[in-house]
Amino acid sequence: MASSVQELNLLRPGHAACAGCGLAIGMKLVLEVMGPRTVAVIVPSCEGAIGGVYPNTSYGVPTFHSAFEIAAPTAAGIANGLKIQGRDDIQVLAFAGDGGTFDIGLQSLSGVAKNNDDILYVCLDNEAYMNTGIQVSSATPSYAWTNTTPEGNPRRKKNIMEIMAAHYNPYSATATIGYPRDLQQKITKAKGIRGTKFIHLLVPCPTGWRTPSDISPELSILAVETNVFPLYEVEEGRKYTINHEPRRLPVQAYLLKQGRFKHLGEEQIRQVQRDVDEEWEKLKHRASLQG
């Protein structure tokens, strides 16, 4: 870890993220590996708030504040524009939230993945529309409280990784801030691959998850260790690799630390555990399919 990396500071301080913001941590870790030869796309979301108000910005790489549902085609447009000009040395990075990825941006992301345009798409998943004040998205987990699911979210979180895998894009991976080295390795790996790369990055949100401002990394680790959010990669839509053998803690260890789950009853917790176990078995099975 050279100190020169720190000087790059591609997510500059002074941004307007809430204290303890997991998303800011995620962006910082990603940008650090992307390096200065990057053009980034952000969309209206907390990323916009973090980006700063004119004339100052927290983004240390050229960044374009595009519209909500088009992070992917915007990035693809930039990538192709640069390619035409022979600028293969510049990588294009798209940041979008879970709303911009799982919901409104899903179609355009799918279009880009189908064309295999050369971009790295990082979905900063904080599991609800946080920037607009905590509304349910299709990335919100079951039973979670949001302002539009005051009784708890009745539906399960959408499996975006499977959707991506169904595009047979060269590389998709889950990552979370609690495992910064894993995350950064994945970004490095993605940088070396041409085509549409997708990182599903879980970023805890103290404001929306109703948690103290100091436990975002810890929650992120618990999400992995309880198997709520396993760390794995999918190559070409078929080669599944589990990157971290979880401790398989009971889901309570993760859920009960968060205010958005504090109303959960025992049966609901058991249901979450069943869902998690089932997904894990599926994932293990997929990972076992190739030698």
């Binding site: 301080p13 002074g14 307007a16 700063g52 004339p55 100052n56």
Partner: peptide, 12 residues
């Protein structure tokens, strides 16, 4: 409009 300044001037 293009922001070239750094948010580092803001004392958060």
């Amino acid at each position: 409009p293009i922001s070239y300044g750094s948010t580092a001037v803001i004392e958060t």
